[in-house]
Design a protein around this nucleic acid. Sequence first.
DNA 1: TGATTCGTTAAGCATGTACTTAAGTATCCC
DNA 2: GGGATACTTAAGTACATGCTTAACGAATCA
Lengths: 112, 112
Amino acid sequence: MLNESPSLDRVFHALADSTRRAMVERLALRPMSVSELASPFAMSLPAVMQHLAVLEESGLVRSHKAGRVRTCRIDTETFGLVERWTADCRSEWEGRLDKLEDYINTLKGQHK
Amino acid sequence: MLNESPSLDRVFHALADSTRRAMVERLALRPMSVSELASPFAMSLPAVMQHLAVLEESGLVRSHKAGRVRTCRIDTETFGLVERWTADCRSEWEGRLDKLEDYINTLKGQHK
DNA sequence: TGATTCGTTAAGCATGTACTTAAGTATCCC
DNA sequence: GGGATACTTAAGTACATGCTTAACGAATCA
């Protein structure tokens, strides 16, 4: 813990934008081309490309180009970083609450 | 899905900074005062206050003031938002992979 | 009461973000 | 070849972020 983790910085920053989250949600359904990915969004293609670049730099999305079509897909590994960090935090305070519960039970025992 | 969710915007943005994540990690251990929370960080108190404001506006942290001391604690509910969103995404692609697996098994069956 | 501690507000500054439009480049298809 | 398709690059703009220092406010304590 208490790691600076620039990669978590990038992942959380990537997810801090509703357009990019929507892109991730779309790619969770299936891999797709840049223009298909872009189609629901009311913004220019370059804007979508910039969001895509942020997602790729974070590691959440990978892509490869075949001919003139770039196909994008989720990198499920990177998702694990988020899930692991949140789980670590949760276990921190749940551990604390468990200890508190034990302590309360100890007190209850003393009252018998 | 495909919700704009400004609150998820704020939560992910709050977590996209290593100082703020470290603050959350500290508060996961136990509630503490502003100055205790600030103590490990090599930055001015106003800077810490601004990070704290971001965390409070996101809903990840709550605080109340007693006398001149403000005590901060994690709001575990808001954590659930992150966990739920990531879990939803994961189930999306895992559902897809399950269906693919079923399809492959169907193909295998046909070859018997 | 006056000094100290704990927190807050305000102003300023350098940098980063999220777009835009305009002008490319590289494939594909007839 | 030549036009349509699918991206890509560049440049510019408006606004947000992450700090700083300086000054202020309010509770505690000797």
